[in-house]
Design a protein around this nucleic acid. Structure first.
Lengths: 141, 141
DNA sequence: TCTAAAATTAGAATTATTCTAAATCTGTCA
DNA sequence: TGACAGATTTAGAATAATTCTAATTTTAGA
């Protein structure tokens, strides 16, 4: 199984060091759009010597190579995800969780608007998620 | 003219202190989606004693009252704008400027997707703006 | 005018991220 | 093998953005 991560890294011309394989595995198995800090905290127990700088460097490297996506979903948080297909992010203002939405995509891809050439885009929605709605009735506190 | 800003503040139940009026005026006259830092730098010459904390507090107050909008347009930058109508932001990866786009709006407003109730949304596009395209021909460096 | 609450201020504290320089690892080729 | 060069990792310092804190000033109302 780890072999797959190694292959993925090599395909992207990234030499598959232990740290990089573990970080990629973490992102694959934790599809919760973690922050760099959360990746670090999730791995440091198993990798005593892991440094935060390595996590930051590695995530940046993965983003630049197109292996993962970097998101900025309201409130100025940098988060990462393994899923690089176009999709929309929805953030619940109660529980704070971020959900993926696979509808209404590819609206803007490779289009030209007002003479600006568009390469990529982010669509972020904000509101109350279905499970918070069910919990509290319909009070928008 | 300043009277209008005062009225605007009072309408939003915000007491119109000197600092608040000046900050609102700055946002009205500088429609470049400035950061908090830029607001501070733009005003401190005329208001010697202005504190950064006041700028941050005031911007947050304005956002909470709905007087201005807070944006997060890629690269984790918090910016502010006076224009609170729904619109799309386009960021040029060459010059870094952020442009407003008034097309394709109101797609998601007040809708429900996957059972999540949507209150507001941000759509951020990224690419090369028309003036950068004209400058350099069409090299996507 | 007096007073209480609100607002502002300067600077310290916090948080996220990047930088730096030293140490370690990896692959290659004599 | 084993020694070198380059890549990678590391710990901790440095930086940048933002928030907190406690003191001071301003404001609005009785």
């Amino acid at each position: 199984m780890l072999q797959n991560y190694k292959k993925g890294l090599i395909n992207h011309k990234i030499s598959p060091t232990t740290q990089r394989v573990k970080i990629l595995e973490f992102l694959d198995k934790n599809r919760t759009h973690p922050t760099a800090e959360q990746v670090y905290l999730g791995l440091k127990d198993k990798m005593i010597s892991l440094s935060k700088a390595t996590v930051y460097n590695t995530l940046k490297l993965f983003v630049e190579s197109g292996l993962i996506h970097e998101l900025t979903v309201f409130e100025n948080e940098t988060r990462y995800e393994y899923n690089t297909e176009n999709h929309i992010h929805f953030k619940c203002i109660k529980c704070g969780n971020i959900f993926d939405i696979h509808e209404g995509n590819k609206i803007f891809a490779e289009s030209v608007i007002n003479g600006h050439k568009i390469f990529d885009y982010q669509i972020n929605l904000r509101g109350i998620c279905n499970s918070c709605l069910n919990k509290n009735g319909e009070n928008n506190a």
